[in-house]
Design a protein around this nucleic acid. Structure first.
Lengths: 211, 211, 211, 211
DNA sequence: AATGAATGAGGATTCATTCAT
DNA sequence: GATGAATGAATCCTCATTCAT
């Protein structure tokens, strides 16, 4: 019975996963309004109605996908990063993890821009009209990557990093690598190992405290 | 007669401008597929059919908007920049111009992400499938901001900037400021004069050649 | 003054003719609903609004075109036909005139099918619902070709033609030639001089009284 | 189970049939561009979107209707026609079948003119520009009525019919009856049994070889 | 007389979602 | 749980017609 249940769970979860994967693919290529639920069903190999067994509607689907991705990204970025390392080493590891991750899951990289431009009520259930609500909701959603934020805080407090808000530090050192990874995935730029090293170093230069 | 003609010209151009402005507004909020031509007509204060007197279809409208914006951005970013200045000074002026521009035309800043995630055939008439065609088409479209690219080339050749492709240098020094400007417009971050100076300096640190 | 007026009249009539010619062309290719007034204006070399100076609306335009065509057709079919000739000779002359006419005005031939399938209220101002009204209206419109009908009557009354209604006699002897002329114009069939003679003879066989 | 399945099949096919029937009705009255998909949906008793479950677009719908009609017409015209009969008898049977058919399916008769004036790419996927392609496509579409064509060939080869192309023979002996049947359906002419016999005989006179 | 910009109703088609099976 | 036929509102775009110039 247990086995049977597990099997069923697994199967249904397979369907959920198939739908989420197909959504990611279509979302990264066409954006939220740019693909239809029928296309999605086809791509996922399920019937149109099946999607609504797992997700309440299109927005819910996107929201759950977003959450899933953040968890996966958080997991990959922090792999092999030791809390005891100096901030510089931590940062370099994270940056390399990010690049590595973009190679194995390019659609996720491509989907970032779509999520960034999405009305925030879809992802967070709050709009720009009420900034404090939105901030709180964002914090919750981005909880899986909080350790990264905390690393920046520690780095700043110990004067290894410049005295700037964490958001800004990340915008200076993580986002450029995201953007370049995306361009790399799209074939718009080429970057070899040496180039990658130089880029990571440049981003480190941007945020490290110059004595 | 001349005046009269000008007035007429002005009026019809007013319609085109009204449509483009309304498009920018809706595009930045909802994305390409996220707003309807009827909404657009309403916002622009014209009849739905009128849009098609000035633009062939929705894609053409977006493309023309994109071109218009690039010209306007190019114009503003390069204002008060002297060719004879050292690269460092040129960069700082451009960065400040960019921030300034984001304050007076926030919707343009917000629309950048939408354009970045748009299928390139809409903007450039070429897809990722044929990279060389796409590259050529991009170059043409981005011609109004070519002087900025050339500044980066000169800076690199004279060893004032790191030895990285211009695209990468820009991704390290211009895009982060764009992103922060966008977040600033949305109220997601606050940045005072000192903070802005620090950010610009940080981006300069990212790309300047450290001897 | 008179001359001036005539010139103006001529010019405006030129416009009317240009519009009618362009209408014929578009109608024969696309049918009543298949072409737009803007296309028509373009083809005729006038502004869209100009059409409405000469015709009340699209239906009126078609109706006037129809009337014009019937007059022109009547004129050509009856050319060189002498009232004193025997019916057989008259018929042969008309049939040859018809073929000849189809060669010099193929669009008219092609437009016949369009008029035949048009709701009769457009052409005659009466519908199939009130057959007697429709019949009267048709008679009036087709007045320019009445001599042909009368020829058939005389032929029947003098027992040179079969004892069938004129409409039927025409459907047996004129319409097939029209259809073949249309197919010839479209390149769907080829018919040389001998073939044409055989066809005309065959149609004559269909209606002549066999003693 | 089988019965159940059949019932379901029947029901869905019912929808397709309802749409085709409604299309025929509207097409014969208004022509291809003259009726809207919304009107069609209303007439067929389905939602607008439902049409697109069965047909790719309006052109596909018309094309399928055309094919259906040709099959039905072929079936009716050749009913009770024996291959062993002399050509004369075959022709007479076909002609009577045609008249009979026009009485029980008048809309089909009325639709013929609409199909005849339709741009051939809709019906055959080929235009007048490439006559050989068009001819081949036509032959395929008209395959269900090929036996009739073959009868004409045999009749001509055995010198029972005049030495004219089959197309011409049909234009002389079948099309006039079609046209008269249409006029009869519309109430534009009356034709009793004797009249019909005379008409069929007249058409036979047109094509039979006179020794 | 002539223009052609402007209109907004109406065109074909697609969409997210539901529900009977 | 899974299906996919069915819906009808909403999509983009075209149309015949008007009217200020």
């Amino acid at each position: 019975m247990n086995v049977h249940y597990a099997a069923v769970r697994g199967m249904t979860d397979d369907k959920r996963r198939a739908i989420l994967n197909a959504t990611l693919c279509l979302l990264s290529q066409r954006g939220f309004h740019g693909f239809s639920m029928k296309q999605l069903a086809e791509r996922a190999g399920v019937a149109a109605g099946t999607i609504y067994l797992y997700f309440h509607d299109k927005e819910d689907l996107i929201q759950q996908l977003h959450q899933d991705i953040i968890e996966e990204v958080g997991c990959h970025l922090l792999a092999d990063v030791d809390d005891d390392w100096p901030v510089a080493q931590q940062y370099h590891q994270i940056a390399r993890n990010l690049w590595q991750f973009s190679l194995q899951a390019p659609e996720i990289m491509l989907s970032k821009g779509q999520f960034d431009t999405m009305p925030p009520d879809i992802l967070f259930g709050a709009s720009y009209e009420s900034p404090e609500l939105l901030l709180a909701a964002r914090e919750k959603v981005f909880d899986p990557v909080r350790p990264i934020k905390e690393m920046y805080q520690r780095g700043r407090d110990s004067q290894q990093l410049k005295n700037l808000p964490e958001d800004v530090l990340m915008a200076l050192s993580i986002e450029p690598i995201c953007n370049l990874a995306r361009d790399h995935c799209l074939g718009m730029i080429q970057l070899d190992e040496a180039g990658l090293g130089a880029v990571i170093e440049a981003c480190w230069d941007a945020i490290r405290y110059h004595h």
